[in-house]
């Protein structure tokens, strides 16, 4: 589904990712763990299409050159990023944002857009599953939301958009244990044969609830070690410095 080869990225001449390789097949859950400044967020930024990076190498998503696609086209193809810091958009109702987003994607795919009633039914159902306070759906997007609410809102958007590849950028940071479980439930509910996940995190904690198929350790812009879920435990015990 996603194939990254020899990816290197610079920002203002500072090298962040070097010779980065990763392959994710349909249905797989990959976790990338790494210390601060290892390049984790750069990876999610580049995959989602954020501008400002000097990028070399190749990224294929379902055999299409990802760099030939605009940010929104990547979203239309089924790439979703749960932001580390979800943005506030004053004056825009959360429901309206979600519906606009879902219908923009449906329209790009040539599918039928949802009307207001169909949409509300869907959003209510998903909000209930994720224990997301329905009252917040009527509020301005992320304005006045707590850190945990913002992250849950990302997961709610993910479950409504039902993407093929979901990238979670440190979604677990700053969450209490209940919110963490909700996020994990959201991911696990979407985990199907064809849906893949790339989970970026500092800590092993989230991986207790979402069992990854693969764990990669990212240091200084490179994957230095890959393994199964046991690698996360080993990391927790030894720390990043001693993993090699």
């Amino acid at each position: 589904m996603l194939k990254i080869s020899n990816l290197s990225a610079k920002i203002e001449n500072k090298s962040i990712l070097q010779d980065f390789k990763l392959e994710i097949n349909p249905g797989e859950v990959h976790a990338i763990m790494g210390p601060n400044g290892s390049g984790k967020s750069t990876l999610s930024n580049i995959l989602s299409g954020k501008k400002g990076y000097d990028v070399k190498g190749e990224v294929l998503f379902e055999n299409i050159d990802l760099f030939s696609l605009e940010t929104e086209e990547r979203a239309h193809k089924g790439i979703f990023l749960a932001f580390q810091y979800p943005l506030e958009i004053p004056g825009v109702n959360t429901n309206v944002f979600l519906k606009t987003s879902l219908n923009a994607i449906k329209k790009a795919r040539g599918e039928k857009e949802l009307d207001a009633i169909q949409f509300l039914k869907l959003v209510k159902e998903k909000a209930k599953e994720l224990k997301f306070d329905e009252e917040k759906l009527g509020r301005q997007l992320n304005v006045g939301f707590s850190g945990g609410e913002k992250k849950k809102n990302e997961i709610l958007q993910m479950s409504i958009l039902n993407p093929k590849l979901s990238i979670l950028d440190e979604t677990d940071s700053g969450l209490d244990i209940d919110a963490l479980k909700t996020v994990a439930d959201g991911v696990n509910a979407l985990r199907k044969k064809n849906n893949s996940f790339l989970i970026i995190t500092h800590y092993q904690r989230l991986l207790e609830y979402i069992k990854p198929d693969f764990v990669h350790v990212l240091m200084n812009g490179k994957i230095i070690k890959s393994g199964g879920p046991e690698l996360a435990l080993e990391l927790e015990k030894k720390g990043y410095e001693n993993i090699n």
Partner: peptide, 27 residues
């Protein structure tokens, strides 16, 4: 830029994104 990127990541083209943000501003 971040707001625009966020909206685009959710499938809106830049003009739709600006329209949405501005309409929110004018609500």
């Amino acid at each position: 830029e971040e707001q625009l990127h966020y909206c685009q990541q959710r499938g809106l083209n830049p003009e739709e994104a600006v329209g949405l943000i501005v309409n929110g501003f004018c609500k």
